[in-house]
Nucleic acid binder design. Structure first.
Lengths: 342, 342
DNA sequence: CTGAAAGCGCTAACAG
DNA sequence: CTGTTAGCGCTTTCAG
């Protein structure tokens, strides 16, 4: 037996579908008496509104699309929670995509989202080493009037788009200042895949901060493209074998943080006695690791809340001014940085 | 300007909408020549198919709904990845819900999902201490013919439903055996909120295993309803103050695991020297914690893959036999269990 | 306050 | 191989 529709309710009550529609949508123009009866029989019949029909009719799906750069990243635990917190009370639903750091997959999902009729998109856009990205597609969507808010990542010089990101340069500068205060001048940085917006920014922040603080930059200590994680081992081992370890390392994402701890232990490099470490992304476990990790903490829940709030307001008012938010990261001091000031 | 539709393409080529539809859907009945032209002008016009219309027409949304018990649980990192891995190639999309351990929220989302026309639902059903749940609603859906696969959690004695869960009793028994082998007889267990399926099962496993292995059960060492996390502190402190610590503790989820480590450290209870610990849910950090944690590891990625595969096959064939899968957990031995055999 | 009719975009059945 | 027609379920005029 098929799902009952508005028509079935109309028929059982001998009224017209339009009246049923009005009654169920809480719109005016129906007597209280009738409305009550409609609602009642709707329940009896087990009626559930068909949102596809409604969407088709008034082109409002009450769905927003999320494009995740990689759904396995713990980033999404807090981010999704933040988004869901603001969406749920407003009855918006989430269509979840996972780009897996792959621009082709991202493109496929973006097209699906549009076809599905999402009212807006929350995206952390992928870009590859060679600079390839789906910027053109995002631009097309922008022209079509699809509200888009970038979170965590964005495109440079595309000021028409809304975004909510962290000040990644400042985040690294904070880390550098902390290291400098603790007497470190020989500082390395481990970066994951090239091309990723946040990683590029963190590297820029490193250069900027070193200049600012008068910290010498040494080519071998800028370890780029640390991926997959075994590369962490190679690089660390090489640095150790050549007796060329910096006194401190800054990690630039949670995964690298984790693997530096892991492989340093295997290589018998003592943290923080031999090398100090500042982690990136404060997963709850960072406090429990040995040693508890001094970490740059991003306000991820906030990114979720703010970006989704921004998206909703743009959905409601397409012609509002660009919303560009840059949040500050925070340095959580624990025990992985040793003071070596003389 | 509105989004172009199939009609617009038809008009510019002076053909009928149905031909365009056939051409774009790769169905037979169109000359190659025409098909080529259709596809071409579709691209020129920036046509994107309207899935709401398609769904309305053939009641196939190519969307499945996921109900998460609590989206902040790291469980969902691997689970969602597993699901997405199987869904993406088959062009199914994910509508994500977050029940937040709240049956009312779960119910709201379930109704949304149905209204949205999802073709199936992957759910970890919530149940409260008092036994309340949305079982009735799930039953209604079952009657309506909506495919449902439960993952991680399920209902007892509801054998009509498909499910993919872990053998939680066995998981705890494995932990007990390991402890017994290492000479432990005074064993405590820390459980989170009452009523949760997995937690109840783990407690049952504890009783069963103790009986099996001839381990005495002591009331004060069965610490239930550890929530919120500060409760971990209270309980541990009390046990310590009364000089009543067991020699080993089994944690029953990742959060409790984490907080036992955390508060044990605060209370200066040495793991594993004073108390051995077996954690539950193997987050990658468990290896980095001090000490590296012996942990019960659930095959979460598999749960995602298998449950979504099961769901898709039920969507394709509604009348197949029930699919009930129980996966085994695995004990990862590290260094948080001390051998105290004399 | 209620009903009739048209249409959102797409597809499937039937004709030609 | 292509076109015509009708209809999926809902809402929104416009009449009454």
């Amino acid at each position: 037996m098929k799902k009952p529709t508005i028509k079935d309710i109309a028929k059982t009550l001998n009224i017209s579908p339009s009246t049923v529609s009005r009654a169920l949508s809480a719109r005016p123009g129906v007597s209280d008496e009738l409305r009550r009866k409609v609602i009642e029989t709707a329940e009896e019949l087990g009626y559930m509104k068909n949102l596809s029909a409604q969407t088709l009719k008034n082109s409002k799906s009450k769905i927003i699309g999320i494009v995740a750069f990689d759904i396995r990243n713990p980033f999404f635990l807090d981010f999704l929670k933040g988004v869901e917190d603001v969406l749920f009370p407003r009855e918006y639903k989430i269509l979840l995509s996972n780009a897996d750091e792959n621009i082709d997959k991202e493109r496929t999902y973006l097209n699906w989202l549009i076809s599905q009729g999402v009212e807006g998109i929350l995206s952390s856009p992928i870009s590859e080493k060679n600079g390839r990205s789906n910027l053109k597609l995002y631009r097309d969507f922008y022209k079509m009037g699809v509200p888009i808010v970038f979170y965590d990542r964005m495109f440079h010089n595309q000021e028409q788009f809304d975004y909510v990101v962290v000040d990644n340069q400042d985040a690294i500068i904070q880390a550098l200042m902390h290291l400098k205060e603790n007497g470190h001048e020989n500082i390395g940085i481990f970066l994951s895949k090239k091309g990723i917006f946040t990683i590029e920014e963190r590297l820029k922040g490193f250069f900027k901060g070193c200049k600012l603080l008068n910290i010498p930059v040494k080519r071998e200590w800028i370890c780029e493209d640390i991926y997959p994680h075994e590369k962490t081992f190679e690089v660390l081992k090489n640095l150790k074998d050549t007796n060329n370890l910096p006194t401190a390392i800054i990690a630039t994402n949670n995964n690298i943080t984790k693997y530096i701890v892991y492989y340093a232990r295997k290589l018998d490099i003592k943290i923080p006695d031999e090398v100090s470490l500042i982690g990136f992304d404060d997963t709850p476990e960072n406090e429990l690791i040995d040693p508890p990790l001094t970490t740059v903490k991003q306000p991820i829940l906030e990114i979720g809340k703010i970006s989704s709030t921004a998206l909703l307001s743009r959905i409601e008012d397409r012609y509002t001014l660009p919303m560009r938010v840059t949040l500050k990261a925070e340095l959580i001091e624990r025990e992985s940085v040793k003071c070596i000031k003389i």
